[in-house]
Simulated scan of single mutants.
Amino acid sequence: MRLNRLTVAAVAFLPVAALALAGCRDSRSAATTSADGTPQVKIMVGGINKVIYLPAMLTQRLGYFKDAGVDVQLSDEPSGASAENTLVSGQVQGVVGFYDHTITLQAQGKCIKSVVQLAKVPGEAEVVSNKAPLAGAKDFKGKKLGVTSPGSSTDYLTQYLATKNGVSTKDYTTVKAGAGSTFVAALTNGGIDAGMTTDPTIATITSKNLGKVMIDMRTEEGTKAALGGLYPAASLYMDCSYVDANKDAVQKVVNAFVKTMKWISTHSAAEIADKMPADYAGADKALYVKSIKDSSPMFTTDGVMPKGGPETVLDVLGTFSDTVKSQKDKIDLSKTYTTDFVTDAK
């Protein structure tokens, strides 16, 4: 069942009640089970209808969580930072969001790790308005550039692209453009000259001839050209204490996701779209299929962290994130992800 942000309050109440019953037990590590003993896991998705996070709902729709013997409750929070905070506070047990949050949180003294990697690249693109004279990141100077929000992954990647191409981050204006309709409106009315976003927003812009893709990080080739290496993004990350205390439940969740990643790699965009909730496609099913087709190269086929990927992410965050910059040399990447569960799933 698809849940919206209004369910967050209800979801948040359950761990609190469980904590009260368990005395001093920390909700970040405590497991809950149904009456028949099935593990229950709450997962918040940083934009449940975004193509980059499609595997979460697809796994639910395919019935793979149930097949794996785990009761997963999905909820939606479009802001990755808010989803991250919900995890840290113990209101959910997992987040489907960008891997880079695990590094940022370690720099803040918290241990969060990716247990299954869904995407090997950001799945994002720098889209430029047809009215703006930009040919590449070297033309960012003096422009208004849209990001999801300041301090977001899109913000750090934009800063990296600018600096790599000789443009100071002080020489352009960062605009909070969000995603979906707000991003499209900003690009259309001149609020931004260009910006970083994901599908299906990219597909909407290009199909309506409102703009074009200037830097494409939905593929391995495009990401390597833009960033110099792979940049693992969408993942399922969890609190380390929860992972250590609930390995059976985590393994079941990972088993389901790994099965989904294999399914994605062997089915067409149209077949994938058919499995998703009808409202995700809106009034234009063909456009939704196109957005999945264009973005599907970003997904891993096995849930494994791509070699060298964490180092690229640390390089970006260690350069532009004030939180990570001062701690860069102390970051232990081996604690930000594990391949143990994926290996056992295979």
Results as ranks from 00 to 15, higher is better:
209 N>W: 01
210 L>E: 10
211 G>A: 02
212 K>Q: 08
214 M>L: 15
215 I>C: 01
217 M>C: 06
218 R>T: 12
219 T>D: 03
219 T>Y: 02
220 E>I: 10
223 T>N: 04
223 T>C: 04
225 A>P: 00
226 A>K: 07
227 L>V: 05
228 G>Y: 10
228 G>T: 07
230 L>H: 02
231 Y>N: 11
231 Y>L: 10
233 A>K: 05
234 A>H: 11
234 A>D: 13
234 A>I: 14
237 Y>E: 08
240 C>N: 13
241 S>V: 11
242 Y>I: 06
243 V>Y: 05
243 V>Q: 07
243 V>G: 06
244 D>P: 11
245 A>G: 08
245 A>T: 11
246 N>F: 12
246 N>C: 13
248 D>E: 15
250 V>S: 14
250 V>E: 13
251 Q>F: 09
252 K>L: 10
253 V>L: 10
253 V>H: 09
254 V>P: 14
255 N>E: 12
257 F>M: 14
257 F>T: 12
258 V>F: 06
260 T>L: 07
260 T>N: 03
261 M>T: 15
265 S>P: 04
266 T>S: 14
268 S>Y: 06
269 A>C: 08
270 A>D: 15
272 I>A: 04
273 A>W: 02
274 D>K: 15
277 P>C: 08
279 D>M: 11
281 A>P: 12
281 A>C: 07
282 G>P: 07
282 G>C: 08
283 A>N: 15
285 K>L: 04
288 Y>S: 04
288 Y>H: 07
289 V>G: 05
290 K>R: 14
291 S>A: 13
293 K>R: 10
295 S>E: 04
296 S>D: 04
298 M>E: 08
299 F>V: 01
299 F>P: 01
302 D>P: 03
302 D>W: 05
303 G>P: 07
304 V>G: 00
306 P>E: 06
306 P>Q: 04
307 K>R: 02
307 K>P: 00
310 P>H: 08
314 L>Y: 05
316 V>L: 09
316 V>F: 05
